[in-house]
Amino acid sequence: MNLLTFSGVVYAISALAGFLGALTGLGGGVVVTPALTLLLGVDLRFAMGASLVSVIATSSGAAAAYVKEGFSNIRVGMFLEIATTLGAVAGAHLVSAVPTSTLAVIFGLVLLYSAWASLHKMHEEQAACSDPLAARLRLDSSYPGPHGFIRYQVCRVKAGFGLMFGAGILSGLLGIGSGAMKVIAMDQVMRIPFKASTTTSNFMIGVTAAASAGVYLSRGYIEPGLAMPVIPMVSSANLSRELRLVFAGVVGLLAAEMIYNGVTGGLK
């Protein structure tokens, strides 16, 4: 397989991963890495690097829409990002110390857990609680509902913060967004309503992934040529129609060139 075909396949896989990620709420990253390593034999660290960068693109693209609609809680996000970024830097440093086979096993377990969590029912109801820390940090907020703004309180801030540190470690260790774990921490533990917790989680994923990205870059996990076909497709799911048309045009060109090469016997 030459580079052109390879990039075309990665392009298609990423498009599918982005679509699946958006559909299931798992995020594209957890799908991209297994697909690249299992189907195309890419080294796990390179796959994690490409996935990590794509996570930044997806989350920032989606966060742009949600932030504008007023669903995400910037204060909760900012406060918890202390935990996720510290965890992410620690996790990213751990990658070189953990054998690849162990990484693969951890990845599989997180994947299983994410799949299980995505089937879990989220809380719509607001539980009554009061956490003095939430009051001090002014975390309570509201989001737009069908009949005006719905107010909510934030519970068990310390436990949520601890879980977020764990989510950050996994994010850095595996090159994923850890979206499922972030939502669980906010939804199950801190009792933030579903709509606000998913969007706030999305808002945080980009910053968490950027915290790992610097370390990944210095360790050589991010290969430009491999990351290139992953990013536009994974991110375009959340972008404007015009831009998707541009990307579709490029895919069309790639397809045409591949067919031409196939017909003329240039592909090996």
């Binding site: 052109l4 990039s7 034999g41 050589g220 991010i222």
Partner: peptide, 21 residues
Amino acid sequence: RLAVEGFAQPHYGHFRPDVLG
């Protein structure tokens, strides 16, 4: 990149990074 070296072989199966920072 694809226009220039589209027919080269991808080398992502082994961990030999091009970019270190």
